[in-house]
Design a protein around this nucleic acid. Structure first.
Lengths: 166, 166
DNA sequence: GTTATTGCAAATGATTTGCACAAGG
DNA sequence: CCTTGTGCAAATCATTTGCAATAAC
């Protein structure tokens, strides 16, 4: 796990007069070691599998703290779940493309996009502070080959149902 | 209210073997006459003020039907509420800029943005189907004049609290 | 008449919170 | 010690649903 993140969190924790606890540290460790987006239930499963004991309430509280500290960002992948993305520290302006066939999420950043957001906002009389862009798309693999390798994987994991149902 | 919308809804309703009801028609009428984004509670208030009698459950069911029919789009303005936008029929590719000072929402569309989304998606091996972009920004008025006219209005309506609390 | 629709109240699911006990500094 | 953190269970909030009565067609 990135030490810069640990330092920023420690700074935030002590500035607020909070304390170091083993439960919270385990949760933070898990989030920023795996370093991939997750839902609360997914994180809870991962913790359970690793034998980390931390209650649901504590996990919710740790997540809230990380969001307040600016280390974790809540994102919406359009699947009805609240998802958290720990990757904005390394890549502050990234966006998400969600494959509507297999659910695979691709992160991408583009300077032209940032430029355009900035210009458009200013033209309307605003200074952009934060943006969130999600593109939903279907993959060429499925279109051309009739099957998308990730689709199979996603179904096995119970993440995508044949029709699009949740 | 736009007759094209009524026609599309009627077509959808009869194709699914559903029925015309006064409650549903009132809800639809209200949504597409005012033609602005709304939360369920706001819509319910508007209906109550106009003396339209339609239960909360019926309003939820009507909204769901309109979303299924593609006439209404669920959007996320980042305030923790589910918002619905009836304006995608007239302006299929528009985006939202939310003023973080006053909460004012500005809709905008831009062809360069569409082009860029398309190119970026293709480069990653996808065909874009749908996108959602929200820019959060602060307004020059507040920055330069020390006050934003909409802020006052928003507070009166109880939409923005002094700090950013909900 | 048959079947969809409504309104109510109860159920659901995600998240938050009150409280008694445990633990950090 | 003193105060924050934890775990549990209960509370909350938005949304959905079961059901009996009502109304389309």
């Amino acid at each position: 796990m990135n030490t810069a993140i640990k330092e920023r969190l420690d700074a935030y924790v002590s500035s607020k007069g909070l304390r170091q606890t083993s439960q919270r540290n385990s949760v933070v460790e898990e989030i920023f070691t795996v370093d991939e987006h997750f839902t609360v239930d997914e994180l809870l499963d991962r913790l359970k599998n690793k034998g980390v004991k931390s209650s649901r309430a504590t996990v919710y509280r740790a997540i809230r703290l990380l969001v307040e500290a600016g280390l974790l960002v809540e994102i919406d992948l359009g699947d009805g779940n609240t998802t958290y993305d720990p990757n904005f520290i390394d890549s502050p302006t990234h966006n998400h493309l969600v494959c509507i066939d297999c659910g695979q999420v691709t992160e991408f950043a583009d300077s032209h996009l940032e430029m355009l957001n900035d210009c458009l906002s200013r033209r309307m009389g605003f200074r952009p502070v934060k943006k969130s862009l999600r593109i939903e798309a279907c993959c060429d693999k499925l279109r051309n080959l009739g099957s998308c390798p990730n689709l199979i994987k996603a179904r096995i994991n119970g993440k995508r149902m044949p029709n699009g149902k949740r």
